[in-house]
């Protein structure tokens, strides 16, 4: 456990809490992609099945349970409690375009051809593209609420810190997880354009709107 990993996990948690707070306080999930949130719930579910088979640490177990709980609460807020505020019209990304290639790839490129390992691989590949419906929605409507951009910022920060974590682990423990690293790099690249807009607009007090 190193400082990049801890800060990465905290950023990830903070992102999910920011999103829940936004929905809870405004009683609205306008501008949030329900499809991205379903994908994240699927990511955590397929990755954390090892809660039942392996014990890593108290930290690991507790964080996994919190992530699952936050993720399912968010999905419930969007499709249950506040579904009348959900903008399904603009959440029109076709999920099969992500799910079909990700499923295929997880069968082809994995560490072990076992059900749990294939599901873990699926979750890693899926996480790298799960934010695309949200980014697609923002590009379609041309704007995002400032609080939504804070959510995306912390999600992107988490990815960037995990890259630093892997570089650190590579040098200190000779740890190298090729599947996670390649997917992590891909995932981080998706945030670059957003980071640019966040720094040049949101941090200067302007709303994120696309020309």
């Amino acid at each position: 456990m190193n400082v990049f990993r801890i800060l990465g996990d905290v950023s990830h948690l903070l992102a999910m809490i920011i999103l829940l707070l936004k929905i809870w306080r405004s009683k609205s999930c306008a501008g949030i992609s329900g499809k991205s949130q379903i994908l994240f719930a699927l990511v955590f579910t397929t990755r954390y099945l090892d809660l039942l088979t392996n014990f890593i640490s108290i930290y690991n177990t507790v964080m996994k349970i919190i992530f699952l709980a936050c993720s399912y609460t968010t999905v419930y807020m969007i499709y249950g409690k506040y579904r009348n505020t959900f903008d399904s019209e603009n959440d029109s990304f076709r999920l099969e375009f992500l799910l079909v290639p990700v499923t295929g790839l997880s069968f082809l490129e994995n560490y072990n051809f076992t059900p749990l390992e294939i599901l873990w691989t699926f979750s890693i590949y899926l996480e790298s593209v799960a934010i695309l419906p949200q980014l697609f929605m923002i590009s379609k409507t041309g704007e995002a609420e400032t609080i939504t951009t804070h959510y995306l910022f912390f999600l992107g920060l988490y990815r960037t810190l995990y890259l630093a974590n892997w570089i650190w682990r590579y040098h200190t423990e000779s740890f190298y997880d090729q599947i996670a690293v390649v997917s992590g790099v891909v995932q981080t690249i998706f945030y670059c354009d957003f980071f640019y807009l966040y720094v040049t607009k949101v941090l200067k007090g302007k709303k994120l709107s696309l020309p």
């Binding site: 090892d50 088979t53 690991n60 740890f175 190298y176 996670a180």
Partner: peptide
Amino acid sequence: IIAKTPHDEL
């Protein structure tokens, strides 16, 4: 140098 299983990251 390869990843260890079980996976220890979140």
